[in-house]
Amino acid sequence: MTLKGNLKEFSFIQLLNLINLAKKSGALYIERPDVTCRMIFREGKLAFAELGNEQLPLITILYEAGLISTAQKELLSIRTAAMNEKAAGIFLISANYVDQTQVSTLLMTRFSEVVRKIFAWEDGFFRFEAGELIPDGRIPVHMDLENLIVEGARRLQEIEELKSEIPSLNMALKFTDRPDAEMRNFNLSVEEWRVINYIDPKNTIQQIAAAVKMDEIQIRRVVYTLLQAGLIEIVRPGGMPLRLPEKMFPTQNPDEQKSLVNRLIHRIRSI
């Protein structure tokens, strides 16, 4: 029977736990309107993971890890252009560019990154296709899930706390009015400086996250730190004065609205 549902009801951590404990083999698909994630498991261990079409050639992965130079990357890209990942891996190992452990470690790191991205997903339809194997030509890994589950559980707790501090990403940020606060005296991280650059009541936190390419957890973490440091505060977006919503009054006539509030004041005074 196919295992399927929504992450809203059954979290990704619970899914990983189930796959791990039941030593399941097959493919887990998690679908959102904009992207699909596929993970392949062999007897409860992660063998492969991909998010959307994020498929980096093995040569690029080696290059990004600093294992080959730019010149080698260009040369090897041409040499392995017609090869699938597995063939390219065998070629690179036999040519002594890398060993098997290094390839395996790099792929595990890459697959872990995919899993970490899914930790932040609170909804998305999932289905588990039992028995589905890793795509042809891809290199499988054999990765224990326990550490990822523990890390995921910690992150889930962190997400809960951050969401409680910053419930809405549709709000904006502004610098606090602290004439004594010298920004340069604060020891901020690169991520924090990147966010600082976009702090303006006109930008929502969501927009800042998109501009600095951060996910919901990353942006909440940075905003939380800046809030705790007393550098910023959360404000309504737009940088404009409060614009009262139309629905709050049964009438749209400003004079009638004012009269209504004055009648309320008069009545409450008389209680």
């Binding site: 501090e165 419930p167 809405s168 549709n170 709000m171 959360i234 409060l242 919503p245």
Partner: peptide, 18 residues
């Protein structure tokens, strides 16, 4: 207090009312 702050921020995000 922490929860109160969270509730305040949540309601502030729902509607721009006083």
């Amino acid at each position: 207090f922490k929860e109160a702050r969270s509730i305040l921020e949540t309601f502030r995000a729902y509607a721009p009312t006083p």
